[in-house]
Each structure stands twice: as C-alpha cells, then as structure tokens.
Design a protein around this nucleic acid. Structure first.
Length: 568
RNA sequence: CGGGGUGUGGCUCAGCUUGGUAGAGCGCUGCGUUCGGGACGCAGAGGCCGAAGGUUCAAAUCCUUUCACCCCGACCA
C-alpha cells in the first residue's frame, strides 16, 4: 500500500471527547470515526486489525470443532418473549418496529436464535456436541457509551454456543473454550488473566471473565501472586474465617453517643478501633427490608449479597421502608431487633466486645458479643475482599488490579433449552434438554485493550500478529530519485514475500513520516536515508524496543522476513 | 434516568457578559525554497455560528422550545 492512498486520516490534535489512550490513539491515527454516541466506523487500518483478530479467533474456534455461521441481527419480538427476556432485558435491548408496527429488536446476543435453530435440526445425541459460533455486529443500547470501542452501542462480537447431551459434555466444551481463549488472547499479544466471575442475570453456575490488565479498565479484580487464583471483586470470596478474638467478653452496657450517625463518628467519640465496630446497612431485596451487619471498615459486596438473599432486585432501602421498620439510621443494632430479616457477614461472630447500634437515637451498645447478646438468622460471606487479604486458595496476600473484560465464558446449563423447549433424544430413548454454554469475545474491545497495553507517548505499538501492516518503508527525501527507487525496490521485494508493507511515498518531510510511523505503530520501519547511498545499508528500526540495525540493502528483505517470523 | 457542561470551517478553540458586515492556530489547494523527528515564504479555498421560533432597524451574541454530543453518578459484554 502506498501511504499517499492509504485512507488513514491522522490528526495533529486529539479530539476533545477521547479520554483514554486507546480511544485517543484510534482517533488520532485515523482508525475509527464516530457516527453517533457509541457508534463507529472502522476505517481501513483498524478493519485490517479486526480481521486479523477475527482470523485468530476462527483458527482457535475451528481447532476445537467450532463451526462458524451467521445469524440475523434483526430479531422478531416473539422469540425473545419465548425465552422471557423481552420483558426482563430492559432498556438496553434496542427495540424497533417494522412498517406494520410489529416489534423487533436489534440483537444484543443470540442465545434465543441459536437455540431455536438447533432445536429444529438436532434431534439425536449422536449429533452432539455442537459448537457453533458467529462473529458479527451486535447492539446494546448502553446507558452510557464511552471510551470509544471499549463500551459502544454497536460492536463486533464473537459468540460461541455449545450444545451437549449432559453436564460432563458441557464441562468438556467449557474447558476447550477456556483453553482456546487463553491461546487467542496470547496470540493477540494481550496480558490477560482469567478470573472467576459472577454469572449474573444470564444464569447458571460457573463463569470466567478474561481480563486484560490495564489501569483504564472498568472492572476490579483480585489475584494471587503465589498461585493462580484470580477473581472479579464481585465474587472474590474471603479466605478461611478469622481466628477467634482472644479478648474475654466484657459486660454489655448501653452508652450515650450523641451526634454519631456514622461509624467513624462513633469510633472517634469512643476512641475505638474501627475493627471493633459493627455497622448496619439497610437494603430492599425485591422490595423487602433486609438489614446487613458487617465490620465497620468493610464494604458490602452487593453481588454476593444478592446471591445470598436469592433476590433479583437489590437497592438501598428507601427511608419510608426504614420508618415502617421503626429503624433509626446511624443507630441500628442487632440486639432487640424483631420481625425484620437480618443477615450478618461471616466475620461478625468472631469479633469480641463489639460496639453496635443501640436501636435508639444517640445510643450504642458497648461490649456486645455475638451468640451471648444477639444472633441473626443468616450468616454469609457478603463483603468485599480488599487488597492484601489472604488468598482463599493458598493464603498468600491478594493483589488488586483493574482489567478490561475482553471475553467471558458461561455455563448456561439448560436455562435456554428449557425455556425454548429445545430437546433431543438421548441414548436411553428419553427426550432431554440440551446442556448449553456460551463463550463471548468483544473483538473491537480486544483491539482497544491491545492498544491500551501496547502504546507509548508517540503512538500505538502493534504486536506483529495483529498489526495492520508489518512494515513501513520510508525514503527520507522524495526528490532524490535514487532513494525513492531503492525504497520502491524494497517495497516490491517485501510484497513478493507476502509481507504487508506500506511505502511512505508522500511529499512530506522525514519528521512527519517518522511521527506517523510511530503513531500507526508498524512493528518495523525501514528508513532509506541519504547515507545509504554511501554505506549501502538500510536502517531497520523495531518499534517496540527502539533498536536499530543497519542492514545491507540486498539483505534487507530477507532480514525483515526472518525477523517477522521470529517475532510473530 | 438524575446532576453538570458544550454545540462557531476537516481538527483544537476564541468571539457571547455589554447585539452592529465571522476570527486564530493546525489541516487543505497552488508555486517556490527546505529535506533524519510534525519546516518556511507568497498566493488561495473553505463556515447561512446544531435546529426551529421569538425580541430588534439589526442576533453567533438576548428570550423560548428542541436536538445532538461530552463529563459525573446509579446499571452492564
């Protein structure tokens, strides 16, 4: 490709809307262009990257017997009503009407469609397992699209759906997909970590998210440096229970604590270690009041709480609900509480001589002890695990990191085959529901994550495997016909070796070409300078390391070819 | 959906308070000089100031309505 014709409108200045490196660089390097909030065009350079990532995905999916197919993006409402998701999906489901006023939606995901497809065609266990995948555009009407391709409303996604005859089969499919994902992200040059994750509203047990580590990520993860444990903070569980507090229980008494509505106030007033305090938080779980007790300095993990309570909707209790329960915010205690469901974090019983709300305005109990002075109906792990706490697997300290969720694998079990009545005949002649899994990768988000992990102040640093072009050839002076001819020869030579190359034939000064080369992130740059006429050498520069090599002109093509093979 | 903010040439922004013939830098076109890290000179092109309505002799500027986009929060691949 000649740079003169390359459709990559690079910018000198970064558009104001971009905040994070990948978004800024994609705009500056002319990779994407916004059409509407969260809706982007992929210009030729980024589309080459998208195709390369997709190709890696295809190879790895095919390697585990995946079969690629293509499904509609416009879905009739009926099929979503059949699974029950038309009503529960909410505003994120992009609903449209056709000319007759019939309801449709733009596909946010394809569980319904693939299940419908398979149930009509696969009737026997002999045809299982099936692993079908698609790479196509999907839509989610995000409340708040942001960070360019990182969270857009229209996005390219790979989804694979597995259909097995039983749980063992699902386990095999799941492991294969998991392994394929490690290969895919590795080949894309991502520093990626699988973490245990909440399966959320999609249901089923067992899910892992693949997190590309990056400070700009939107998800928090905890991982162990000593072993392979890693989990999203949403579900990270606490290690073994704490050792019993050695203090002997002292006498319980009620103390006046005026103007102490927060736990910090109380501890300051009583000159007390916050770790000895118990705080109460009030939630409405599916509209029903629940009081949560946990150590004063801990944070509630709402995902765990939701799972413990088996509720669908969880929110802070509205004041009205507190009033009905006769509760005084800031002074809610576990002693003498009646008729309200109460849940305590599993750490609470191990803290001796606690300070806990007195139940009346301006009072707290001192020296409260679980078991002696009060009990609660449920004890569960419902708090956030913090950095530095012990790994639940090996006991080493946990570290915290931020990550970009580039993929997620789910065990769906029979959630969709059940609601969609998708069954097959098993070996025993019985009709059984398919046991399903689904495995997604955000293709555009993967590209963004790669940039997020591989850039410097000058621009993108593409890994060879997904670089839009591997090499740029720059003659430093376009008026010097000899240099131009040498550059041209190398360009042609590289093309003959099937190496994707850009010849920067623009009438620009060298500085402009170098800066654009750094911005676009070609792994290798070949500079044909004036000195090459005397020395007979081309200069080969490695974008990622900054290394430069003087290579004789006749050997340059071979050198570059070999370097690319070695560094793929 | 709540709170805040911004819409002026391809990009970044000034002008708006106090109405009076639309500006700068970058980019773009032509010519010349320059040529190893975003050069310089000269000459040009390009905007009915997001949209609609109103006030006024006169509106980018004031008023009303509306749309779009951005940020913060709650929710999510």
């Amino acid at each position: 490709m000649k740079a003169n014709q390359l459709f990559a409108p690079t910018l000198r200045e970064i558009p104001a809307e971009a905040e994070i490196a990948s978004h800024q660089l994609m705009l500056k390097a002319g990779l994407i262009q916004k059409l509407a909030a969260g809706v982007y065009s992929y210009l030729p350079v980024s589309w080459r990257v998208m195709k390369k990532i997709s190709e890696i995905i295809r190879e790895e999916m095919d390697a585990i017997d995946g079969q690629e197919l293509m499904m509609p993006i416009v879905h009739p409402a009926e099929i979503w009503q059949q699974s029950g998701r038309w009503d529960v999906y909410g505003a994120e489901l992009w609903r449209v009407k056709d000319r007759h006023g019939r309801d449709f939606c733009l596909a946010p995901t394809h569980e319904e469609i693939i299940t419908d497809l398979v149930k009509d065609s696969i009737r026997s266990y002999k045809q299982l397992p099936q692993r079908l995948y698609q790479i196509q555009t999907k839509f989610r009407d995000e409340r708040r699209p942001r960070f360019g391709l990182m969270r857009s409303r229209e996005f390219v996604m790979k989804d694979m759906y597995s259909f097995d005859k039983d749980e063992e089969g699902l386990e095999v499919s799941y492991r294969l997909a998991y392994g394929a994902y490690e290969k895919i992200f590795g080949r894309c040059g991502l520093n990626c970590r699988p973490v245990e994750a909440d399966s959320g509203a999609i249901g089923g047990s067992g899910s892992h998210e693949f997190m590309a580590l990056a400070d700009t990520g939107e998800a928090d993860i905890l991982y162990c440096e000593a072993c392979d444990y890693a989990a999203s903070t949403e579900i990270a569980s606490v290690a073994a229970l704490p050792e019993a507090d050695p203090q002997t229980p002292a006498e319980l008494f009620l103390k006046e604590t005026p103007n102490c509505p927060t736990i910090e106030d109380v501890c300051r007033f009583l000159n007390l270690d916050i770790k000895k305090s118990i705080k109460a938080m009030c939630y409405a779980a599916d509209g029903k009041l629940v009081i949560v007790f946990l150590r004063g300095d801990r944070r509630v993990n709402e995902v765990k709480l939701k799972n413990s309570l088996h509720c669908l909707e969880l929110e802070f209790a509205p004041e009205e609900l507190l009033r009905v329960g006769g509760l005084v915010p800031g002074y809610i205690g576990a002693i003498d509480i009646k008729g309200i469901s109460v849940i305590a974090d599993c750490e609470v019983p191990f803290i001796s001589n606690q300070v806990i709300g007195g139940g009346k305005h301006g009072t707290h109990y001192v020296n409260a002890n679980y078991g002696r002075d009060y009990t609660v109906e449920t004890i569960a792990d419902i708090r956030m695990v913090e950095e530095g706490e012990c790994c639940p697997k090996c006991g080493a300290p946990l570290r915290k990191a931020r990550g970009i969720e580039v993929g997620q694998v789910f065990k769906l079990h029979t959630k969709y085959s059940h609601s969609m009545e998708a069954r097959f005949h098993d070996i025993d002649g019985q009709e059984k529901e398919f046991v399903m899994g689904c495995y997604g990768i955000g293709v555009g988000r993967t590209m963004a994550a790669v940039i997020e992990q591989n850039h410097d102040e000058k621009g993108i640093i593409w890994p060879v495997s997904i670089a839009p072009y591997q090499v740029v050839v720059i003659p430093v002076n376009d008026k010097d016909q000899e240099l131009v001819q040498i550059a041209q020869d190398i360009y042609v030579g590289l093309q003959k070796k099937q190496i994707e190359t850009v010849l920067d034939d623009r009438k620009e000064r060298p500085g402009v070409k170098f800066n654009d080369a750094d911005l676009l992130g070609y792994p290798l740059r070949i500079t044909i300078g004036t000195k090459c006429k005397e020395t007979g050498n081309a200069e080969v520069k490695v974008r990622s390391t900054g290394e430069q090599f003087d290579i004789p002109l006749q050997e340059t093509v071979d050198y570059v070819t070999n370097w690319l093979i070695k560094n793929k």
